[in-house]
Each structure stands twice: as C-alpha cells, then as structure tokens.
C-alpha cells in the first residue's frame, strides 16, 4: 500500500519535471492547475486518454480540435461534472480546503437562467449560491452592460444578453479558475471585446483560464492544446 503510494509520488515528480513551461510564462508563481494522465470514456467511446496539461497563474489555455474531440468533456471533467476514467486534476497552490470545482467558474453551453426571474434576481441567486458578495452585483452588471435592464425578466432578453448575464456571474464572484465553453457564442463584436477585456483583467489579477473555442478570443499570449490529434 505504502509502496504503491511512493511509486505514485515518484511518477508524479518525474512527469512534473518533464513538463515544458511556456517561454515568458509565470514560472514559479503560486497557483497551477494541472491535469495528469487524464482519460475520459463516454458511452464506451474513448474521447481522450493520457492527457496532460498545466496552466499557471495569468495563463490562458485554448482548447482546439474538431467537434467531438473532447473539448467540452475536458472542461466538464475539470469542473467535476464528469468523472475521469483515469488521472487527476489538481490546483496546486489553491485553497487546500476546497476542491477544484469549488474554486472554478464554469460557463457552459447553457446560461443557467430562469426566464421568470429578473436579471438582478438571477445574478443575485448565483452570487448567493456561489458564496459571493451581493455588493459586487452592480459592478458586474455594468461590466456586461446589463445595468439598465436589471429589473427586466430574463425571459425578455435576447440570446446575446442572456449570455452576457451568464458571464456577469464570473465577474461578480471571484474564482481563480475560469472554464469557458464557447464563451463567444451568441455575442456580437462589442460584447466579444468586452469579454476579452474581462478575461485579460482576470488573467492580470492572477487568475487562469481554459477556453474551448472555434473562433479567436482576442487574448494575447495564449497557449494552445490540440485535442483529437490521435483520432
């Protein structure tokens, strides 16, 4: 039992040494999100296996690959919504009391909004559930340009406005890790720029993010992880 554990630790140390750090990255900074030897099988189909990654503070990792390559699955796996068949995800230097999902924001395909609640009620609910501060709400709504219509029901909003309201959650509650699945979908050019600014601010503030995307995000100095190459 103990023997196995030691082997495991040794293996991990060896692998860590083998990791290539990006030039000009935040080498030696406090927080690193690592995924090691991750495998994901869904419906008897192996989506990916032996996947390693490391994202440091201030870094953005862009997940690329064709549909079905496992971009969304990887994000959901990090968010704790899908169990990895093998491997582990850890946030080194994060809060040891909390799990990785508890320190992460997940922006999925759905906006997680209730049409009968107002914009402010929707955002306020997520601030409360995600242990944020209500005081941050006004600023977050301004950041996504929804402050004028805070008292309208979310059901009245367009797809882009709903997406922005969903993004406001990331601004209102502070989390070091952002997991974004196609964050620019349904957003117009101005909103995409606004999102890029929010992501840049998040990275500059010592956060890190992983994003699955087909289009450009408007971020400088990102790294890429290509999925589905083996297939």
């Amino acid at each position: 039992m103990e023997f196995c554990y030691i082997i495991d630790v040794l293996n991990k140390t060896k692998r860590r040494a083998a990791f290539d750090r990006p030039a000009g990255g935040h080498v030696g900074t406090a927080m690193d999100l690592i995924g090691r030897d991750l495998a994901c099988v869904r419906g008897q189909r192996e989506i990916f296996a032996g996947l390693d990654f490391r994202v440091g503070q201030g870094e953005a990792l862009i997940l690329l690959g064709p549909n079905g390559a496992g971009k969304s699955s990887l994000l959901r796996l990090i968010a704790g919504l899908v169990r990895p068949t093998e491997g582990l995800v850890a946030l080194e230097g994060g809060d040891p009391e909390l799990t990785v999902p508890e320190q992460a924001h997940y922006l999925g395909h759905q906006d997680a909004l209730k049409p009968s609640l107002t914009v402010a009620e929707n955002l306020g609910f997520w601030i409360d559930v995600l242990d944020g501060e209500r005081a941050a709400m006004a600023e977050a709504l301004t950041a996504v340009a929804l402050d004028e219509i805070a008292d309208l029901p979310a059901g009245y909003l367009s797809a882009g406005q709903r997406r922005r309201l969903s993004i406001a959650r990331l601004v209102a509650v502070e989390r070091p890790v952002w997991l974004l699945d196609e964050p620019t979908s349904a957003l117009d050019a101005a909103s995409q720029e606004r999102l890029a600014a929010l992501m840049t601010a998040h990275l500059a503030g010592g956060g890190l993010l992983l994003a699955a995307t087909h289009g450009p995000l408007g971020l400088a100095g990102t790294r890429e992880l290509r999925l589905g190459g083996r297939a």
Binding site: G80, L81, A104, G108, A112, L113, K114, V129, D131
Partner: peptide
C-alpha cells in the same frame, strides 16, 4: 438540469 443550473449547483460549496 435542462438550463444548466444543476451543473453550477453541483459545483458550488453547498
């Protein structure tokens, strides 16, 4: 589940 709220509730600290 359908609107994605359940994912976020599962991820929360509650």
């Amino acid at each position: 589940h359908d609107d994605g709220s359940l994912d976020l509730i599962l991820m929360g600290r509650l």
